[in-house]
Amino acid sequence: MSERLDNQSPELFGQTPWQTVGPFFHYGLPWKGGADLVSASELGARAELFPAEHYLLHVAQARGPVKGRVIELHGRVLDAKGQPVPDAMIEIWQANAAGRFVRDEGDSFLGFGRSSTSREGEYRFRTIFPGRVQEQAPHIAVSVFGRGLIKRLVTRVYFAGEASNEGDAILALVPEARRGTLIAAKDDHGYRFDVELAGDRETVFFDL
């Protein structure tokens, strides 16, 4: 019987604590194609950060037809000083065009994606515009990971110009002055959503 408490101690049983992904996760987490929810590509990975023979992660394969409007969701992760964060990782989880979280008949879309950030702090997803889930406005759930983030930060992407944003129960919980940090702006590539970890225009983060 060990005297020191550890993972197996019954009196300590409970949630395993969060720890940071650190700066060296690129050969372990963001696979080629992880950020492309529509077609087969290498979007999401940063394989240039380690020797090619050590790329052991998955390579996404072509999938079947995906229903809905294809969009690019992209932006930058910035720190409290406005500096880009090059060693962050973004994950998304969203509904399909019909507002559902499972693969539907005739629709191969499944709404999970993962993108590392570039040297300029940029992430990029190819996905589809999400359908409404129950009474909610179209949205994408976002997790932010990185060096210096002991635990993930959770936020949501909403879309500029959506009339249903007005009646969204989650957006209504956010003070009006900060609501704009959750609204992605339309641009030539799709939608732009910057994540500001701290600072004057700090992104709203949620406690689930």
Binding site: D79, Q83, R147, V174, A198, V204, F206
Partner: peptide, 10 residues
């Protein structure tokens, strides 16, 4: 420099 200063919104 990488953690929010505003409280999380439940």
């Amino acid at each position: 420099d990488r953690s929010p200063r505003q409280p999380l919104i439940e």
